[in-house]
């Protein structure tokens, strides 16, 4: 059961930001509601008002913009799975989105809501970390860009200010000389561990790894890029990197800040991180 609340339905970003200023902690932004309404039904949080931002036009568009992929924060998970732009430019993101929760959650839940709610056991943030995504936060007086590395502060905590809305996710278009994979594992409804790996090769010859990026999610309070695990792979041939990947995966596990919870013990999650890093690396190399 939901407790009584009032509904505000602004149709501009400015009006939404105004309402956030006016009602402060008594109000919360509402888009898909797939996370928020669950904790409100449980009585874990209580808001006097919800600010439904789905009346603001054009915030769900996915397009190519000046060489970058632009995803509107209100795009639902399903809209991302059927987007021609993403299918062409970023199939790994389509695949990840196609496995978020279930078909009904994907229908209603938005990528912006997913990121802003910052539930630790979520998929998108981890993949965005290896893609170098930038998040656009807007308020009445203007907007700013937040690198995704600086967005997640802790479980359920982001670096958005109290009067800001996430409006857009901007992703540099991945180069053709690279590969990308996101894998997850879990035995409950939400994943225990999610791992994203991206490799870029130099000169298009696929001989040397110019850059490797690895991110781990779900294991700890917030998704994080594990640069400690990337370093050993840099400048290596695929063959050398393949020999080193167990080691890199082990480093990633230890750097993941895994915590013991319902989804597994710290030790278990660290092990799964290692296994998934290896598999994701193999997939990323194959897809390059």
């Amino acid at each position: 059961m939901l407790r009584r609340f009032r509904l505000e339905e602004p149709d501009t970003i400015q009006a939404a930001s105004d309402l956030l200023v006016r009602f402060g902690d008594a109000a919360r932004l509402y888009a898909g509601g797939t996370e928020l309404l669950l904790v409100m039904k449980e009585g874990l949080v209580r808001y006097e008002r919800l600010i439904n931002i789905k009346q603001i036009p054009n915030l769900n568009q996915v397009k190519l913009d000046n060489g970058a992929i632009s995803i509107g924060a209100l795009a639902t998970h399903r809209e991302l799975t059927v987007s021609p732009v993403l299918r062409e430019s970023l199939p790994a993101l389509v695949q990840m989105e196609n496995n978020v929760a279930n078909i009904r959650v994907r229908e209603v839940g938005t990528i912006g809501g997913n990121l802003c709610f910052a539930e630790p056991h979520a998929d998108p943030g981890t993949l965005l970390l290896v893609l170098g995504a930038k998040l656009i936060a807007a308020k009445k007086t203007g907007q700013r860009e937040i690198a995704v590395e600086n967005f997640f502060r802790d479980a359920y905590e982001t670096s958005l200010e109290s009067d800001e809305l996430l409006t857009e996710i901007r992703i540099p278009r991945p180069s053709a000389a690279g590969g990308l994979a996101y894998l997850k594992f879990g035995y409950l409804e939400r994943p225990s561990v999610g791992v994203a790996v991206r490799v870029e090769f130099n000169g298009g010859e696929k001989k040397w790894i110019a850059e490797a990026r690895i991110a781990v999610g779900c294991a700890g309070p917030a998704p994080r890029r594990v640069e400690e695990a990337e370093a050993p792979l840099k400048g290596k041939s695929i063959q050398e990197a393949t020999h080193l990947i167990d080691e890199a995966g082990g480093i990633a596990g230890r750097a993941s800040q895994a915590i013991s919870d319902l989804h597994g013990s710290q030790e278990y999650k660290e092990h799964i991180v290692q296994v998934l890093v290896k598999r994701a690396f193999q997939q990323a190399v194959q897809k390059s």
């Binding site: 407790r3 009584r4 609340f5 009032r6 509904l7 505000e8 006016r22 009602f23 008594a26 006097e48 008002r49």
Partner: peptide, 13 residues
């Protein structure tokens, strides 16, 4: 909306 109060006031849609 009118001025905020602690308990949400009734609203119909």
């Amino acid at each position: 909306a009118t001025a905020s109060s602690k308990a949400a006031e009734r609203q119909t849609i």
